[in-house]
Computed example of a mutant assay.
Amino acid sequence: MVPIEDDLFEKLRVELRRGSLVIAVLGALREERYGYTLRQSLEQAGLPIEESALYPLLRRLESQGLLTSEWREEAKRNKRFYRLSPEGVETLAQLLAEWNAISESILRLTEREM
């Protein structure tokens, strides 16, 4: 087996993670969090994400109607808290079903190869 180049692997890894992070963020926001605690939660689960990627993703998911947010003061600082919207709950369930189907298919395909 010929190893792939590191830069090619990195590009493919980033592409794979991008879709995975949407599901992870939606799943983590089943309970209300603000950006920093969301980042911590993702990192503890093994999915670190930079602020420069997280906040645009949160804005996009909110504009798509999958999240709601509100500004509140906590510890004398204004923080924006995010949570799944009802549409987000439904979409997360659909995405998880699709994720599981894809994962099972990939496992069936790759088990034969190894």
Rank of each mutant, 00 (worst) to 15 (best):
M1S: 11
V2F: 14
V2M: 14
E5D: 12
L8Q: 08
F9E: 11
E10L: 06
V14F: 05
L16R: 11
R17E: 12
R18Y: 10
G19M: 07
A24N: 06
A24V: 05
A24I: 05
V25W: 03
L26S: 01
G27Q: 02
L29A: 00
E31I: 05
E32K: 00
G35R: 00
Y36N: 12
L38E: 00
L38C: 07
Q40C: 06
L42W: 02
Q44N: 07
Q44C: 04
G46H: 10
I49T: 02
E50F: 04
S52H: 10
S52D: 13
S52C: 09
L54M: 13
Y55W: 10
L57W: 14
R59H: 14
R59Y: 13
L61A: 02
L61V: 12
L61Y: 08
E62R: 01
E62G: 03
E62F: 06
S63G: 09
S63W: 06
Q64L: 14
Q64Y: 09
G65S: 13
L66P: 02
L67H: 03
L67G: 08
L67K: 00
T68W: 05
T68N: 10
W71H: 04
R72D: 01
R72Y: 00
E74I: 01
E74Q: 03
A75M: 02
K76E: 09
K76P: 01
K76S: 12
K76N: 08
K76D: 11
R80N: 07
F81W: 09
F81Y: 11
Y82D: 08
R83F: 06
L84F: 06
L84T: 04
S85W: 06
P86M: 08
E87H: 11
E87R: 08
G88I: 08
V89E: 13
V89M: 12
T91I: 10
L92M: 03
L92H: 02
L92E: 02
A93Q: 06
Q94G: 12
Q94L: 15
A97F: 12
E98T: 02
E98D: 04
N100T: 02
A101W: 03
A101Y: 03
I102R: 05
I102N: 06
S105H: 08
L107D: 11
R108A: 12
E113I: 05
M114T: 07
M114R: 11
M114G: 04
